[in-house]
């Protein structure tokens, strides 16, 4: 069977039946989603990495209790969110994340510096602003917006993953865009 045609639940079943390596398929499908979900919520990328890893390992350990009526991605985000809350509680951390922007763009700028330094500076500044604006969005707007822009998911899928009605997803993404537009104009 073509791997790409397999649904998440089929892959889950295969893993549960002992085909351990099939779990890589689920990681492949959703690592970026979990990564971007955590990225705007944490201070440093090391921590993002750790929680991404922990999320998938936890999902693996509890795979037998996965409710196949749910979206696998929804379940993963629930795990990630819980781990995030946990880690924040332990560390007493806030969400502020300017370091993250620096870190994301630092390597980027080094990589591009040789070719177009001036443009890179502008791009970095712009990216910094965008991320800062997104971080100020309420979580309920930020998550669907990121899923839409970063993960390029259709509304229907976002609705299923976030387990909210379709129209709510649309409204939230529009609201997020409106707020971002206001902020951009006031820059």
């Amino acid at each position: 069977m073509n791997r790409q045609e397999r649904t998440d639940v089929e892959v889950v079943q295969a893993v549960l039946a002992g085909e351990l390596e099939q779990f890589a398929e689920l990681v492949e499908r959703y690592e970026k989603l979990v990564f971007s979900f955590l990225l705007t919520r944490l201070n440093d990328l090391q921590e993002v990495e750790d929680i991404v890893q922990e999320t998938f390992v936890k999902a693996f350990r509890h795979l037998a209790s996965f409710d196949c009526e749910r979206r696998f991605a929804a379940w993963l985000l629930t795990i990630a969110r819980n781990l995030l809350i946990d880690s924040r509680r332990k560390a007493g951390r806030s969400i502020a994340s300017t370091n993250l922007v620096n870190e994301v763009m630092l390597t980027d700028s080094v990589r591009e510096a040789a070719s177009q330094p001036a443009e890179v500076v502008v791009r970095r500044e712009r990216f910094r602003n965008i991320v800062a604006m997104i971080q100020e969005l309420p979580e309920e707007l930020r998550t669907p917006f990121l899923m839409r822009v970063i993960n390029e998911l259709p509304y229907q899928e976002i609705a299923e993953v976030l387990e909210v009605p379709l129209q709510t997803v649309k409204n939230r993404i529009f609201k997020a865009r409106e707020i971002l537009r206001e902020k951009r104009e006031s820059l």
């Binding site: 994301v104 791009r123 990216f127 997104i134």
Partner: peptide, 8 residues
């Protein structure tokens, strides 16, 4: 830009 930065 956001997509590119996060992809990166």
């Amino acid at each position: 830009l956001l997509r590119a930065g996060i992809d990166e």
